[in-house]
Design a protein around this nucleic acid. Sequence first.
DNA 1: ACAATATTTCCATATTTCTCAAAATATAGG
DNA 2: CCTATATTTTGAGAAATATGGAAATATTGT
Lengths: 111, 111
Amino acid sequence: MARHLQPVEALSALAHDTRLQVFQLLVQAGTEGMTAGAIATAVDVPASTMSHHIATLERAGLAQSERESRMIHYRADYDGMRRLLSFLMEDCCQGRPEMCADLVSAMACRP
Amino acid sequence: MARHLQPVEALSALAHDTRLQVFQLLVQAGTEGMTAGAIATAVDVPASTMSHHIATLERAGLAQSERESRMIHYRADYDGMRRLLSFLMEDCCQGRPEMCADLVSAMACRP
DNA sequence: ACAATATTTCCATATTTCTCAAAATATAGG
DNA sequence: CCTATATTTTGAGAAATATGGAAATATTGT
């Protein structure tokens, strides 16, 4: 049992409205990141509750933290997200090219 | 609140070891699909427990069912999965092309 | 050393999810 | 109509997750 530990943890972390919002915010914030307080304010959730959620994202490999004087800056962990997406795509595509065809065009990042 | 209803439901459905295994099985099974019994046997989970899990996947738009005499065939809902992946990619890529670059090569489905 | 600010950890409670046996439903064949 | 098979629904307890106030920790400035 427990075959998909990491992917399940990452999926689980994103499977929550508040945490998904937070992850989006962090992606938007880019390398700058956001302080815990700014995140809590933006999403309008008490600091302690938010702290739990952020910790969950961090454990799941989807966010990273760095203390900067009194504040702690959080940023999205792109590598973790990439790992999750790769897993899902290899998982869902295995042997079925027709599946991912549209996905490529859905990617807003091509030149 | 509850801003991300559908994506969260789909993520939540996949955020469980058994259900993730089931989804993979269904993808592998292709258009044939698998009966509820075959799935339960393959994953070694009691029928009633499995029924709940499959229902969760179906509600989340990741599986479809079709009765065929006494058995019920389930198949992966590729469209639902594509929707989820699109959401995640647009979400994680917004404005950052460097993020998805590697993803394209991670897709095992290119010719 | 103290006060102020930023954040986390502790703790208790509330809610949701998970599990599976037992009963119910659906279908097919004799 | 009865029996067997396939699956779901019901119901209830166990486990996990979510929430947030209060206390603890970390840092800075005075």
